[in-house]
Design a protein around this nucleic acid. Structure first.
Lengths: 361, 361
DNA sequence: ATGAAAGCGCTAACAG
DNA sequence: CTGTTAGCGCTTTCAT
């Protein structure tokens, strides 16, 4: 009964134990780094492991311990520099704490997000970090909680969910930039967001299913109202999800009888496309149009003019949410924590005084 | 002997089987979607699973099947848009094929890369996609192969490793842009790369441990030699790893008696920092200096002047390497495949004729 | 300090 | 078509 190890057959603790002349349990103790073993036995086992090229099977370990040492992360789009930085923050903190990250892209699709959550739970991740596509349908998030795995939210809060959440101060930021614009005489300010509504039109706040964007629009409309600019809601444009859609919105905006004198872009992808579009249309920044974008993406500093932005501590957003989650994994209890990171307005040259437009009688 | 399921105790196939009044094997068959089961039994099991809120344990499945449905990916820095796009390509292809991705950042550190590979193997990933930090030390990559897991290389080839590899045509691209510059009369062309050498100086090609960069420098020097520009090697600058280092290099370059009239940036992070630095130094593009960068990052199109770049099909790079790897996972055999994706030169306005500089006697 | 044995949740033969 | 029986590789009581 010779045992002929095929190249696909991996060496196990049993093999090492046998080679070292000790029991499986003892070998497992030194290989797994737990319990107590005498020094000489430890050495013998280590030598045997080395000789046999033993490689631990984390899956088997996870099976018995119930912990996989893995965190599941679901973001909208890793290609978006915003999430790129956040994920880097998460992975850095996770690695330092001995955790790995399984990454899933939702593409901002609820169905994809649900599937990802289900898969991650099945994979027995110890905890989840999610940037939920919508806060309207959260059954799958509750399911994650029910599975006993801590959940933490990234960038987007869900009021009905009592979990650790890290966001940036969207309301404050939107209020500040709107006031800045109003202070420069702007009264026709358009707000462009990738968030979409069923009819692709904005009519009321409750149609916006992403908390961060909802807060921004609320602040935007509020600041306008405070300045006696009525019905700012009609300047909100949703569904700016790709270059084509953004082009269409910009075109529509400037084909109207009264085009905007300022645009707020809800993320840097929108900001970039607006910048390109208006440049091609011969609209001068900031002469004809003022532009402010959320997220201080790298490009915003090198354009002519450079773009005024809301700087968001994105890497730190990832770091913080990972720290919170790992705290739970290490046994921290207590009520859900909400961290709101401050933003900073970086004023550059894309904002100027509103020009009185002839068409506006 | 009542069984009181604590909230942390998950329901298993055994529980479902019991509730449905069938054997564990039968329940497992419908839950796992394999084997054959009668329709009525299938329904009964599904109902029971639903009622008990059964959630499969992929870890247990992986234990017995030997497949985890997971691909390990190690990149230098997910924050770099280059890798962001590549990883998106990988995850998209992986998801479609039913695989998940565990992501690890090496930070271009060999030690971190080794640790990541070890961890990923321990986690029983089915295969690995790596963008190796160095092609000089590859024992850990061989170990991955020895573990029986297919390995595929992203963006960087390793000659001594016989595995599927997907790169872009670095040699051709570097040759083309160098010739373009030379055609414009440039003879003092600096090449900046993040790759580093022990003494932070470039002396010979074999000091460069990243194949893509080595090929580029080889093409660069070769094209210079063809144009009777001797010793182009002295214009190569390594270690452009962060903004500070890049600033220092640019400063050094322009403090010299004979500053360069053109700069080639080996990635978009370098390109961006060079752009900022020369702008601050009052060096005009393309009047005083011509600039070409690898990677058509979004910012390169919106600067003034916009930057001439080597467009690399980065998303496709990720797609392709994932496709190759998954092919292996599905049983494809045969010799290692090498795919070299073509690049495209996007000529914009950052390149101009070389100006005769007074200081160059 | 060490060993024997049980079992995590699932799949994979092999019977019937 | 369905049930029985073994494990996968590891950790973990419980003895010794």
């Amino acid at each position: 009964m010779e045992k002929i190890p095929a190249k696909t057959v991996s060496v196990t603790v049993a093999d090492v134990a046998h080679a070292a002349g000790v029991s499986k349990a003892t070998a497992a103790r030194v290989l797994g780094g737990y319990g107590t073993v005498s020094d000489k036995v430890r050495e013998a086992v280590k030598r045997a492991a080395q000789a046999l090229d033993y490689r631990p099977n984390e899956l088997a370990r996870s099976m018995t311990t119930g912990r996989s040492g893995t965190i599941g992360v679901v973001v909208g789009d890793i290609e978006n520099p915003f999430f790129g930085s956040a994920v880097r923050g998460i992975t850095d903190v996770a690695r330092l704490a001995g955790f790995n990250v399984i990454l899933a892209n939702s593409g901002e699709s609820l169905a994809a997000e649900k599937a990802a959550v289900k898969t991650l739970i099945a994979k027995q991740v110890d905890g989840l970090i999610i940037s939920p596509a919508k806060d309207s349908e959260i059954e799958h998030l509750r399911e994650a909680e029910r599975s006993g795995r801590p959940l933490a939210l990234l960038d987007r809060a869900v009021a009905r969910l009592d979990v650790d959440t890290v966001t940036t101060d969207d309301f404050e930021a939107a209020q500040a930039i709107t006031r800045l614009l109003i202070g420069q005489g702007h009264r026709r300010i358009a707000y462009l967001t990738a968030c979409d509504t069923p009819d692709h039109c904005f009519s009321q706040l409750s149609d916006i299913y992403t908390s961060s964007v909802r807060l921004r629009i609320e602040a935007f409309i509020g600041a306008c109202r405070d300045a006696a600019i009525p019905d700012a809601a009609r300047w909100v444009r949703v569904g700016a999800v790709n270059p084509q859609a953004i082009r269409a919105i910009v075109t529509e905006l400037f084909n109207a009888a009264t085009p905007p004198t300022a645009i707020i872009a809800s993320d840097s992808l929108i900001g970039l496309e607006v910048f390109k579009a208006v440049r091609e249309m011969g609209i001068a920044l900031p002469g004809d149009l003022s532009l402010i974008s959320f997220h201080d993406a790298d490009w915003t500093a090198v354009t002519s003019p450079p773009v005024t932005v809301v700087q968001q501590p994105v890497y730190q957003l990832g770091e913080t949410v990972a720290t919170l989650l790992i705290g739970r994994l290490k046994g921290e209890t207590g009520p859900a924590r909400t961290v709101v990171l401050p933003t900073r307005l970086i004023e550059r040259a894309s904002v100027g005084k509103a020009r009185l437009v002839a068409t506006a009688i």
